[in-house]
Design a protein around this nucleic acid. Sequence first.
DNA 1: AATGAACGGTAACATTTGTTACAACCTGAA
DNA 2: TTCAGGTTGTAACAAATGTTACCGTTCATT
Lengths: 203, 203
Amino acid sequence: MIKELQQFPLFSQCSEEVLAELLRWPYQRKVYKEDNMVVRVGDTCDSLMLLTEGAVETRMGSETGREVVIDRLQAPMILAPAFLFAKDNTIPVEVSMTTEGVVWYIHREAFFQFMAAHSEVLRIFLGDLSDRSTFLSSKVRSFAVKGLRNRVLDYIRQHGAITNVSETAEVLGVARPSLSRILADLQAEALVERSKDGFVRRR
Amino acid sequence: MIKELQQFPLFSQCSEEVLAELLRWPYQRKVYKEDNMVVRVGDTCDSLMLLTEGAVETRMGSETGREVVIDRLQAPMILAPAFLFAKDNTIPVEVSMTTEGVVWYIHREAFFQFMAAHSEVLRIFLGDLSDRSTFLSSKVRSFAVKGLRNRVLDYIRQHGAITNVSETAEVLGVARPSLSRILADLQAEALVERSKDGFVRRR
DNA sequence: AATGAACGGTAACATTTGTTACAACCTGAA
DNA sequence: TTCAGGTTGTAACAAATGTTACCGTTCATT
């Protein structure tokens, strides 16, 4: 079981003995089926959530809004690390499995003590938290980019290709036909072409 | 001087002696004038930046994009804590003074050691980092909300009022006349009214 | 072969938002 | 007072995006 945790960069420096120390505190390990909901909007976050198997999708929406896919994540991955220590630890996204999978829950206090005692873990966790912020910043930035056209070019630059038009439309937060239209334009202008991997940059 | 640091929640638990320990490492203290640029897009972040006096505005833009005001911050405030420990510690926002002010720079390694040794500081820093993520999440969410109309209502709900139409338009990432138009509509529908504080929710 | 589901292209039209330009208003300074 | 600068309202038009609907392709299943 401890091997499941050691695959995390977060714990890569830790020996089995050290990790066993963390697991002396109460923890949980839950198995989820495909399409199961792991986190609902509004759930509070009192435990470090570690996705040790499977893949999830995080979505954000609102009564009035379209639903935007924020991210698609694969194990091993820390889920929602940014809400664990927040003043308002209410999670604003919905997390659901896209495959079968396993999530570990480690209580906040236990993890905090563990980090305080193991600075190499702390450093990696800080890095992870920061990387998540960087990711969110780039999301914000991408919405600030004017024109779907440029957002699409940005997207292809960052992801290499658009393999699935519908799914990408969800991530970009636009209607599928709108994305199709832009892709047609970009092809006409020879900025983008279809390869076997989907739409890629030309030249 | 140390008093300037003690006003931070981050260091509120620390005695002067303990803080003096942190300042045995090299640090800087810079004074800025109004409109001075503190951080340019692409700068790397190797120091904890503490705004001890004055106010700043953080903006995000791109060659192709409109410029969006991400946040307006007042001392005391940690600037860009999320990039200090990120793998890619390139700052994607521009930070400029909106008044005169002072920023302290404390080297990353010094601060890391200090946190590892003082878990109450660590806890507050983690909280701060997390709150910043929460803030960014809510930004992302607000861009996902469909229709400027709903974004405006959200904005008023969160901020209480719109006191300055131009500035708010920058934050919402829309053209000023568009915001004016929506506000006129909302007034006509009696959802919003002008008070001495600006536009507020009605009823 | 027949079927149905998932995906993508596209057209016609509606709606939203941007752009530009101008006028009105307020405030503080000369 | 006059003036300049900043803020807001608004109109007319342009451009971008959403909506809906329909068609064709592919692929797995029966």
